[in-house]
Computed example of a mutant assay.
Amino acid sequence: MADGSPPDDGGTAGAGPKLTRVTIRKRYSGVIEGTLDGRQGTFVIQHGGSADGEDQSSDGSIVPHSGTDGRTGI
């Protein structure tokens, strides 16, 4: 879901750059290229990004302690 609604600005509208909060939920199922020593399990990736006009960037990292089964401790 991406609603694009502006966050509560605490009454400071117009005091700086426009802020927008977007919530996106993704679920992937299928084969991911590569293996983790043949171990099965799941883990959570926290993803973030920013945009400034046409300049965009994103990054992601594995949430600590989110691994299950053979991926515990990832």
Rank of each mutant, 00 (worst) to 15 (best):
A2Q: 13
G4R: 10
P6M: 04
P7I: 03
D8P: 10
T12F: 01
T12P: 00
A15Q: 15
L19G: 10
R21W: 06
R21I: 09
R21L: 09
R21C: 10
R21H: 09
T23Q: 09
I24A: 13
I24M: 10
I24G: 09
R25D: 12
R27Q: 11
Y28I: 15
Y28T: 14
V31E: 01
I32M: 09
E33K: 12
G34R: 08
T35Y: 02
L36G: 12
L36N: 14
D37M: 04
D37G: 01
G38E: 00
R39P: 00
Q40L: 11
G41M: 10
G41D: 13
T42W: 00
T42F: 00
T42Q: 10
F43V: 10
I45G: 01
Q46M: 10
Q46L: 14
H47L: 10
H47V: 15
G49R: 12
G49S: 07
S50N: 06
S50P: 02
S50D: 02
D52S: 12
D55S: 14
D55V: 14
D55K: 14
S58P: 04
G60C: 08
V63Q: 12
V63M: 05
V63S: 01
V63G: 01
H65Y: 13
S66G: 02
S66D: 01
T68P: 01
T68F: 02
T68M: 04
D69T: 09
G73Q: 05
G73C: 05
